[in-house]
Write a protein that binds this DNA or RNA. Sequence first.
DNA 1: TCCGAACTGCACCCGTGGTATAGTTCGCAA
DNA 2: TTGCGAACTATACCACGGGTGCAGTTCGGA
Lengths: 211, 211
Amino acid sequence: MTETRPRRGSETRTGILDQAETAVLEKGFAATSIEELITAVGITKGGFFYHFKDKSELAQALLQRYIDRENELFVDLFARADELNEDPLHGFLVALKLLAEMMADLPNAHPGCLVASVCYQDQLFKREVRDLNAVGILGWRRRFRTRFDLIAERYPPRIEVDLDHLADMLAALADGGIILSKVTKDKTLLPAQFMLYRDFVRAVFLGTDPT
Amino acid sequence: MTETRPRRGSETRTGILDQAETAVLEKGFAATSIEELITAVGITKGGFFYHFKDKSELAQALLQRYIDRENELFVDLFARADELNEDPLHGFLVALKLLAEMMADLPNAHPGCLVASVCYQDQLFKREVRDLNAVGILGWRRRFRTRFDLIAERYPPRIEVDLDHLADMLAALADGGIILSKVTKDKTLLPAQFMLYRDFVRAVFLGTDPT
DNA sequence: TCCGAACTGCACCCGTGGTATAGTTCGCAA
DNA sequence: TTGCGAACTATACCACGGGTGCAGTTCGGA
């Protein structure tokens, strides 16, 4: 086993990333100093630059990790939901409910979206990082779009909507809802938006006629 | 006419604000240097600090101006829409369409939302600024909520939804849609979300039965 | 003529990102 | 047991730029 590069699992490295993530979500990337990170983690400057040749490399690693984690979370979520219900529509509705519940204890559960944070400081980053961000968003779309295709086969839409747009809507509501929650300090706001979206999806595929 | 304080309409002041707004939306507040602002506007450092005693005062003025403008825009929008249609629901639907059209040429029309930008760097600002931000959001809610109350009187909702949440949804979609648009560089995304929201509102108050 | 609004010009300090380099600890493999 | 390389520490240094303060200047209007 040749193990040349610094092991990605190094405790120090993840420690830096953890610290950086919370700091960036609070103050933004530019205002997050390397100094503050290393004192928090308990290392020296040399140690930092051993793991990241650049502040920009830190940004990239941060965003990559965030996107990967989010991915995992959704794969897991849908797996659980589909276990409970094999119908594609009702499985999705269950997943939305689970999602709303997970987000109930903001900001502990979700202190902010790094994608949004990067978006509002994108000129700080190289194209590489910005592209990574776009990939993250398009991943959401693809994931939900394929699900909607499945659903639409069984439940012909009662409202004529573009399914890509419907997929994007969930991402938009998530990002927007997080912002509203943070600004108003109202934890219930984000889950409420997910449940509203759920109502919409139900109306699209099942209509509003009496059950 | 006693004209003591620096005239708020001073060209220099608004010039600084204009420059700062675009810069902040691109790079964030911390990364926006005073130096870059004054060279762009063509003044010296002293000139800047004549208008703003502090960088933080600049932030406050920036956000205040942004919220005021947005307010004006919506008052105007609803006035126009209600001229075209006196029914509260259909007036609202018209307003949403107008809004979608206005946002069609992103990012020229709307390079970003300052409220969202501040949200993701809130630890940089004093409570005063953060509170200002919350007021901005709650303003949206109140505006749309009262409208929905009006609509609901005439059109009993076909889907049981909390009208405050329905009001918040528009703000969330706006902020979220802007983020998606910026990240994916797809101008059509934001207007599409507004139109989707419109479909939802219609379904809530009119149902999905054949027209 | 003179006052104050709206600046200019300049000097200052310190935090920060980044570089360099020499030395230290420690676990693992031969 | 040795030794090598990963993962650091310790220190020193630099250039830049952000934030601040203040004294002086321009200029239009009462």
